[in-house]
């Protein structure tokens, strides 16, 4: 690819020398084609993020208006980092991360089974993918009823199986976050599975064939060949999972609205409450910046970690 590109550039370079008019026209064409995208991202992403940086140092409040706003330095950041609810939301987000390895393990198992050991592959892909494609709002509404502490089907089934005191799920501060994680696992399996399926196609078939000849069991093949060779995919999915965990909004907002007693609040839900319920614009901008920095750090970690941790 690199050689092709440099050849392209060399070609273009010589042409430009021959015909500067053509070069000028190329420039105009290029800018016109890129203009909608570039203007759109500038107005909707670049400008807002820069404005957020500035706003995060003010105490602006939408209601009181511009005039009463003033610069407060790092006060917002200090307040946020010492706010017990924000720290709780960060802690919750860290706990939510535990759902990712579980999702990955189930997804990889299913992917391997679908890839080699069963019939009707396409049907099963579709089945496991369905929750992922479904509206998170509707899913949250369904689970609100399924998780009903006394009369919900899940607890009715548990009680009929002999569980005397089933958990109160989303009504119980101790189990609310677990409930959110269970739904995340349920919806996330399909996506992770199909990415794993793509990853599995890159493992040479000969490896399995020679392992079979050597008499390796399916389990040995799984742990010695599949798991290590699919590690680039695992790493990708792990990072993607961490980043998307910081973006969950619809599921929590509709399922628990961050409750009960902030048991399921996450930084994004906290941001929403500060910005759109309490209308603390400056403060919420600072929360945005903190979330932004966290995700940026994870992304950088991905860039540098890839070489170090991925097997081959």
């Amino acid at each position: 690819m690199q050689t092709m590109e440099s050849r392209q550039q060399a070609n273009a370079g010589s042409k430009r020398r021959r015909n500067s008019l053509r070069g000028w026209r190329e420039n105009v064409a290029g800018y016109l084609f890129v203009a909608p995208m570039f203007i759109g991202t500038s107005v909707l992403v670049l400008f807002p993020i820069l404005a957020s940086v500035v706003l995060s140092f003010t105490n602006w409040n939408i209601v009181s208006g511009f005039k009463k706003a003033s610069f407060v330095g790092f006060a917002n950041y200090q307040d946020i980092l010492s706010d017990a609810i924000f720290l709780k939301s960060l802690g919750n987000n860290l706990l939510i991360l535990l759902a990712i390895p579980v999702t990955l393990a189930i997804a990889l198992t299913l992917a391997v089974l679908i890839n080699r050991y069963i019939y009707l592959k396409d049907l099963f892909k579709v089945i496991y993918f369905m929750p992922f494609i479904s509206s998170a709002v509707a899913v949250a509404i369904v689970f609100r009823v399924l998780f009903h502490p006394t009369r919900g089907p899940i607890n009715q089934i548990l009680m009929s199986l002999g569980v005397e005191n089933p958990p109160g799920w989303i009504a119980d501060p101790k189990f609310a976050l677990v409930s959110v994680m269970l739904i995340m696992i349920w919806t996330g399996i399909g996506f992770n599975m199909i990415i794993y399926l793509a990853g599995l196609q890159n493992i040479p078939k000969e490896l399995y064939e020679s392992a079979q000849i050597d008499g390796a069991s399916s389990w040995t093949q799984f742990t010695r060949i599949t798991v290590p060779l699919v590690s680039p995919t695992t790493f990708l999915l792990l990072v993607a999972g961490i980043i998307s965990s910081f973006k969950i909004f619809d599921l929590i907002l509709v399922l628990t609205n961050g409750g009960p007693g902030n048991a399921t609040i996450t930084p994004v839900v906290y941001l929403y409450q500060k910005a759109f319920l309490e209308l603390k614009t400056g403060y919420a901008s600072a929360v945005s910046m903190i979330i932004f920095v966290i995700i940026l750090l994870i992304t950088l970690l991905q860039f540098y970690g890839q070489k170090k941790w991925v097997n081959y």
């Binding site: 973006k247 945005s288 979330i291």
Partner: peptide, 9 residues
């Protein structure tokens, strides 16, 4: 840039 960090502005 995560979309939520842009919501306010």
């Amino acid at each position: 840039v995560p979309p939520q960090t842009l919501l306010v502005t």
